[in-house]
Design a protein around this nucleic acid. Structure first.
Length: 586
DNA sequence: CGGCGCGGCGCC
DNA sequence: AAAGGGCGCCGCGCCG
């Protein structure tokens, strides 16, 4: 089904071997590291699936050299799935081979932060031509496995996928995960177009002029003075939680924390300027001038994406806070001249995924069209859209108290299949079991604290406190597994969506008129520049915007079919074509 | 001095 | 407004 594979890895002499795993005795090429990109480009027209230890180790250098690949098999990411999936448990027990140790080293390296703009940034994961003498203790570079080890691991993973409980689903998951790895590297290489001027304007509007190094912005200083006056606390340090809490209490404001939502419940002249101060402090420290200096290079934001970086399969990022860009600074995401942004997000992705996972036809019916919450109201389950929303989120997150907890039972009566699915997942987690996503990613085992708490509660002399504690810890883990199946399956949908879109974008003809500043691989073609769980941005020559929008829609529909077959569930998108991210309306 | 846990808060 | 799940980053303050 899969066509030709070509594995890449260092040979004994440090040169790089490119070889078809089906014909390991006859390498297709043996090249010096400098010759790798050329060799890959030469073989790429055969549409191979490139097999390598990890995309992070190999692909950035290829992109730097102008070589893009269509498909790969990322062994580090594949092992993370295969070695823990319930669907491969029997296959692993039957298979003699262990997961090799080098995979764990690569996994650790993937989580190490890489300094932005560092000269050797993209090559930092290992030294070219020095695979065998890598110094592990220094973090980088990491010892690369030799070509023989790569071939052996590839064979092991093929065996496990073939012998898994659902081979088709597992192969799709592995392919999607690997496509995600390619996309993560390409997002970094292309970068998110970023206007320093617009960002500076936002900062000046909010904070005032850039302060000298070490000083606080003027707007923050004046708000701090107001707070100190209102609290009658001339020296309180607003950045110190301990200090601030004491001052608030001395001023008669009985709070247990300094969080915004708790402050807002009190009526006192200090509250408004304090909340305003906190908002500005957050902006200044997270996305202020020093963030700009550190992260925006040549008009691009290049965060370090970590595909598969979380337990559920959602991505993580390391450095730059790319997945937490405040709405306020999204104004600075601006397309190049002659280019535009196609911004799309999947509307209410997780409830729709839940309906499909559970084959809950009534919930799928409510999800028909644009707004599932409105659909739930129209079905007479609750009175208002807001009630539908908190009830549904409560069902997926395991809320037991408050408005949400009270509304969940009504949802359960109307949508018993969906509710049963998340309740089963929660029950499984509470007793320490594992749950599995739509395609086969399994949840981790519960933490040590879970085991200890249950053990203590089962002793003959266990106290009521021990038992309460054990139930509480169990329920915590149950909420995690409850959410895991939905969040993890939604992450799979997003990967399939994005992978399909990437393939479609690769077929666009280069645009003649305007080159972007996205580097040699992307300067003339539409390309992904951002991904945020259920949202993407494509940077495209303006003339292709409509066609890109169509490709985004087609990819979403295709992802739904790939994951859920004939089950009738819509995945509508909110899609806009805009010059600035802030103008996209979700 | 660096490492680390915590509170708080940004995003989904 | 949060709540209930997943994250990363910041500053603070404690520790060795």
């Amino acid at each position: 089904m899969d066509g030709v594979h070509i594995a890449i890895g260092p040979g004994d002499d440090g040169r790089i071997v490119l070889v078809d795993p089906a014909d390991p005795a006859a390498p297709l090429a043996v090249v010096d590291p400098e010759g790798l990109a050329g060799a890959v480009a030469e073989l790429e027209p055969r549409s191979p699936r490139w097999v390598w230890s990890s995309t992070r180790s190999w692909y950035p250098r290829l992109l730097d050299a102008g070589a893009r690949v269509e498909r790969c098999d990322d062994l580090a990411l594949g092992a993370a799935i295969l070695d823990h999936s319930a669907d491969t448990a029997a296959a692993r027990a039957a298979d003699g081979d262990e997961s090799p140790a080098w995979l764990e080293r690569l996994r650790q390296a993937a989580l190490d932060p890489v300094a932005p703009g560092a000269a050797s940034e993209t090559a930092a994961l290992f030294e070219l031509g020095d695979f065998s003498h890598a110094d592990e203790s220094a973090g980088h570079p990491v010892a690369e496995p030799g070509i023989g080890e790569v071939l052996a691991e590839h064979a092991r993973q093929q065996r496990l996928a073939a012998a898994s409980a659902r081979p088709r689903a597992m192969r799709l998951l592995l392919a999607a995960e690997s496509a995600g790895a390619l996309i993560g590297a390409e997002l970094h290489a292309a970068g998110l177009p970023w206007s320093r001027a617009v960002h500076e304007r936002v900062l000046e509007e909010e904070l005032g002029a850039r302060p000298r190094a070490g000083a606080k912005p003027a707007r923050m200083e004046s708000l701090a003075a107001e707070v100190r006056l209102a609290l009658d606390a001339a020296t309180v340090n607003l950045d110190s939680q301990v200090d601030l809490l004491r001052a608030l209490r001395l001023a008669g404001i009985q709070v247990d924390s300094t969080s915004r939502w708790e402050l807002r419940e009190h009526d006192h002249p200090a509250i408004e300027p304090l909340v305003a101060y906190k908002k500005l402090a957050r902006l200044a420290s997270a996305n202020g001038w020093s963030w700009l200096d550190e992260w925006i290079v040549d008009g691009r934001f290049r965060p370090d994406y970590v595909p598969g970086g979380t337990a559920t399969g959602r991505w993580a990022t390391s450095g730059g806070g790319a997945l937490q860009l405040p709405k306020l600074v999204r104004r600075a995401v601006v397309a190049d001249e002659g280019w535009t942004l196609v911004v799309a997000d999947a509307a209410q992705l997780e409830p729709r995924v839940l309906a499909a996972l559970a084959h809950d036809e009534r919930m799928a019916e409510a999800a028909r069209g644009r707004d599932i919450y409105r659909g739930i109201v129209d079905a007479g389950v609750v009175e208002t859209r807001d009630q539908a929303k908190v009830a549904l989120l409560g069902a997926m997150y395991g809320a037991t108290t408050g408005d949400s907890g009270r509304l969940v039972p009504r949802l359960a009566r109307a949508y018993p299949k969906a509710m049963a699915l998340v309740d089963r997942a929660a029950a499984q987690g509470e007793r320490g079991g594992v749950v599995t996503t739509n395609l086969g990613r399994s949840s981790p085992m519960p933490p040590e604290t879970w085991r200890l708490a249950q053990q203590r509660a089962s002793q003959p002399d266990a106290s009521a406190i021990d038992e309460r504690r054990a139930r509480s810890v169990a329920r915590d883990w149950g909420r995690f597994t409850r959410n895991f199946v939905v969040q993890g399956s939604a992450a799979e949908w997003a990967l399939c969506w994005m992978a399909g879109l990437r393939t479609r974008l690769a077929r666009f003809e280069p645009a003649g008129r305007a080159a972007s500043r996205s580097g040699p691989v992307f300067e003339a073609v539409p390309h992904l520049v951002y991904f945020l769980h259920d949202e993407i941005i494509v940077h495209t020559p303006a003339e292709h915007a409509d066609a890109v929008g169509a490709a985004v829609e087609q990819s979403a529909a295709e992802a739904g079919r790939m994951l859920f077959g004939d089950f009738a569930i819509d995945f509508p998108l909110d899609l806009s074509v805009v010059d600035s991210y802030a103008l996209a309306d979700a």
